[in-house]
Amino acid sequence: MIFRKGELFNGPGGFALGASLARVEANGELYTVQHQWSNDYCDSACDTYTANICPDKPESVHRGDVRKLDLTSFEDIDAFIYGFPCNDFSVVGEKKGFDGNYGPLYTYGIRVLEHYRPKWFIAENVGGLQSANEGAAFIKILSDMTAAGYRLTPHLYNFADYGVPQNRQRILIVGFRNDLNMEFKVPAPTHGPGRDHPYKTAYEAITSPPIAEDADNHHMPVHTERVKKFLSYIPEGQNAWSQEIPEELRLNVKNVKMSQIYRRLDRNSPSYTVTGSGGGGTHMYHWSENRALTSRERARLQTFPDNFVFHGTKEKVRQQIGMAVPPDGAKAIIEAVLKTYAGVQYKSIKAKWDIDHLLKQTSMELVTL
């Protein structure tokens, strides 16, 4: 069975690549996911998505502001994925929630659910969503998805637990259409202490196999001598606030000590979270070499293969890589979705949130939104 997939806010195609790799054989049938259509407002992301996901069907990638699209004019779909913009829910931003420009954009996914009635969907956002608008935004979103006719399983995932060489926490909401009488179970983590596999390390991701010198998106960063000297004093796994940095080289910043500023990777652990924006000192730094990572190295930490080429300026490429869902993590979750549909049992854990309990909290909170 092939599930035809629609996607909003497609980014460079991390979720789409993971979906294309997902395979489940059961009941004498092969269950897969196939790209049908997608949308994003960023031209560079659309160029990347088209080149890597659907080069033979460029017209299926609808470019532009989702608020200006006729969402009822696309082809029919059986599955839907959308990582609605997280800028207003992220702990890195101002956390404006529904009061920002991006917070309300999740409603366009609700419109897709109501019009196309896909069998299942996955929505993705940052962990900060759970506390936006003092928690009311999360409940409102879940309430609207439930009202659209879906049984939900929301959970806070760390993709490192599923073989991604990066500590990256994201909320995924998986929903099955009510009439299917199916309930998604959170797949049990496969990586980490006491599990089937150890965590995949940053060193393993970046060096095995070695990245070819002429690989796409692998331009070495250029630093001033002062920055290189500054980095030389930072031990592996530590950051700009290391006590080993000489006084004359330390940053002249008061009352701010963000942990990711000039932070080196720890080669024996998954990396910290790859981000898509930020000023000096936020580009992620090699465990021993006195430099920032290349875009290709950051893409490795996100589990993109080296033949997945990102299009656009250096900053647009960084943005795409940092905002993407790791394909290997997406594949693990989508295969659990396919097993659920096929009736295949798999190891699972209890979801972080009980949907019925959460929705009982709606009466007071929603009035204030």
Rank of each mutant, 00 (worst) to 15 (best):
Y285Q: 10
E247Q: 15
S295W: 09
F304W: 05
S295F: 10
G281V: 00
A299L: 08
P305I: 03
Q260N: 14
A292M: 02
E297H: 08
G279D: 06
S288R: 11
S269F: 12
L249M: 07
T275V: 11
Q302K: 12
E248Y: 15
A299W: 10
Q302A: 07
E289V: 06
R291H: 01
S277T: 07
L301H: 06
R296Y: 09
T303C: 04
S269L: 15
S269C: 14
E247T: 11
Y285K: 11
S288M: 06
R300D: 09
S259E: 07
L251K: 14
S271C: 05
I261F: 10
T294W: 02
Y262D: 01
S288C: 06
L251H: 11
E297Q: 14
S288F: 05
G276R: 03
Q302C: 07
G280N: 02
Y285R: 10
N252V: 01
T275L: 07
S295G: 13
G276K: 07
T282W: 10
M258K: 13
Q260C: 06
S269W: 11
E289H: 12
S277I: 00
M284L: 11
L293Q: 12
L249D: 06
Q260K: 08
R300H: 09
G276S: 05
L293F: 13
P270D: 07
V274K: 01
K257T: 08
L301A: 07
A292K: 00
Q302W: 08
